[in-house]
Design a binder for these strands. Structure first.
Lengths: 335, 335
DNA sequence: AAGATGATGGTTAGCGGTAACTTTCGAGCA
DNA sequence: TGCTCGAAAGTTACCGCTAACCATCATCTT
């Protein structure tokens, strides 16, 4: 079978070089204490000399485990996910797992495709952003028998492990903070409008309704959020609702963009207009004034995910649970 | 062999259900036109009914190709990489390839580990950020026989495909633009100081030296860059070199942070201090004033990478080349 | 001294696919 | 009618590695 792309070095090549069988080499790599020290050293020397790269596809196929976990994130440019990723990665690395990343672009169809791909590679676990998936994806996940984490939002019906925070409650709490500061005409500015953005908006709406206030000043777009967009949309809002006193932006990027727009218009923040964002990214503390926001415990979410996942990988039984890590409203100087 | 984690559905199960052999099912999936239409439809029905997930590990093992490409990026929160990623992903997807992502955290050791992992999974190609790798990683790559892309920077000795821009020339061009605007005391502010940041700084230095000016006002740190850090470091610089007229920040984040610091200090930009960043991210157009920067053709880099990679994947011979996609200095309003 | 024991390494039989070759069979043609 | 030919499906062998079981041998026991 004339395949072998090139002279790829296999376990057998190492075994031949040392004069043992390949299972011994395999053991030397996976359970070193089961191979005598002198032999082990000769094997290690041969591996270094010949430049052996283990074929994980073959290993995963034979053993059914791959020592890797896939993380599917909606956006690479959104710093929210990088904090979570770091937590997960560091937790898993200590236990010898590799983290592989997939990019869904906020599409559950693309998510489904990646779930299929990574399950097909035999990953031992999967971390998904969000709790909404295609029907087919859910079927795949159930059938796969590997631990699955859904994160960021909470759901009453977790597939398996669910770690996040109540986005609606956070949106509501932030809005109530606006109200507590005396603002009455509080608008909502949202982009992308993925599920989490919708939940935050629902919180905004609920808080205003509960206070008997209007939820009219609401501007959203399916476009991805950006600083530029935050500025443009704020402009539209001010034109349409000139009496606006405050704007809840569904994330920090939009809020920063809105703040820059205010600076251009010489609109004092918060005296002429109050602003708030969501997530507590680095930028909110850097701007002048610092932006009000909801700080989400992203790093802790990542840490906890790693802990829960490792427990399952090490044999703990599946027991669907939802874990709420909370949030913190930070007033900053823009409110 | 009591393994089979669960009742995972295999090609054989589909074949049994339909009453054919598994190779026919395999063909129905990969080369549909080679299987008669009625049979194909029965196979497709069985696949849907039983919920078959192809095992890519097995396929990759048997065929030597995985129809996937790995992209290793230093940072998830840096928007630079998301543009490149999008270009690559869209280009590859059209040809039926999946893009898998690994996170190196700017560490070439971690990069080495990921190269090993992904090669072990049998990816058909690899895209690396940067041109510096561990010796062992380079050996792995050479031996693997798969196309490799090095991106962002240029190198006279590409491993294979190299697509990027001359970071030093860009740093120099931006600095010369400062000089053309009449600034003489031009400082450099750098964080992380990865290889690309060093190259940009070398460009800054070269431009100043060529003009017979001092390169003394230079502040760098190994810490990861952030808006906050940009502000803090600008503060230190102003304290240390009060006569500073302009600052070249090694990326847009730092520049934005520096701008915010100026706003806090009521230092007019550019009248009291000129600023510039690097990359041309969204934020530079959003701030007031817009920031000067070097716009890097990130999306185009991604697109070209996909094209070059696909050519190699479809059989074009390896022929190490370095492709310079250039850059554009944008003056904005901060200079 | 004979069997039990533990450490070390080997044998066998796949994991779930795919490449390459072979077989079968009906259509087209002289 | 006999033969070639191409489409459709099957056979065989193997990708590189590992689980489970087995063999060997020096060291202990009693």
């Amino acid at each position: 079978m004339p395949r072998r792309a090139s002279g790829r070095v296999t376990l057998q090549d190492i075994a031949d070089r040392v004069g043992v069988t390949k299972i011994t080499v395999s053991r030397a790599l996976r359970e070193p204490q089961r191979v005598s020290l002198p032999l082990r050293q000769r094997i290690e020397a041969a591996i270094a000399e010949l430049g052996y790269i283990p074929n994980h596809a073959a290993g995963a196929l034979a053993s059914g485990r791959s020592h890797s976990v896939a993380l599917l994130i909606p956006s690479l440019s959104n710093a929210v996910f990088s904090d979570i990723q770091r937590g997960i990665e560091e937790g898993l690395r200590a236990a010898g797992y590799q983290l592989l990343i997939g990019h869904t672009g906020y599409s559950i169809l693309e998510e489904e495709r990646l779930i299929d791909t990574y399950l097909g590679y035999g990953v031992d676990g999967l971390v998904l952003s969000g709790t909404r998936h295609t029907e087919h994806a859910e079927r795949l996940l159930r059938r796969a028998g590997v631990p699955v984490v859904e994160t960021l939002e909470l759901t009453p019906t977790p597939l398996d492990i669910n770690v996040g925070l109540d986005q609606t409650a956070a949106g509501r709490a932030l809005t109530e903070t606006f109200l507590a500061h005396g603002y009455r005409r509080v608008g909502f500015l949202g982009a992308r409008m993925d599920h989490r953005a919708q939940l935050r908006m629902a919180g905004w709406e609920a808080a205003l309704r509960a206070a008997g206030l209007s939820t009219e000043s609401c501007l959203t777009t399916p476009q991805p959020s950006s600083y530029r967009l935050g500025g443009e949309m704020l402009g539209s809002m001010l034109e349409r609702w000139p009496a606006l006193e405050a704007v809840f932006c569904c994330n920090d990027d939009l809020a920063a963009g809105a703040l820059f727009e205010c600076q251009r218009r010489r609109l004092a923040v918060p005296d002429a207009l109050a602003l708030a964002g969501f997530n507590g990214l680095d930028i909110v503390e850097a701007t002048a004034p610092p932006l009000a926001t909801v700080v989400t415990p992203r790093r802790r979410i990542g840490d906890i995910i790693a802990v829960r996942l490792l427990a399952r990988l090490q044999g703990a039984p599946r027991q669907p649970t939802s874990e709420n890590l909370g949030f913190e409203v930070r007033v900053g100087g823009s409110l």
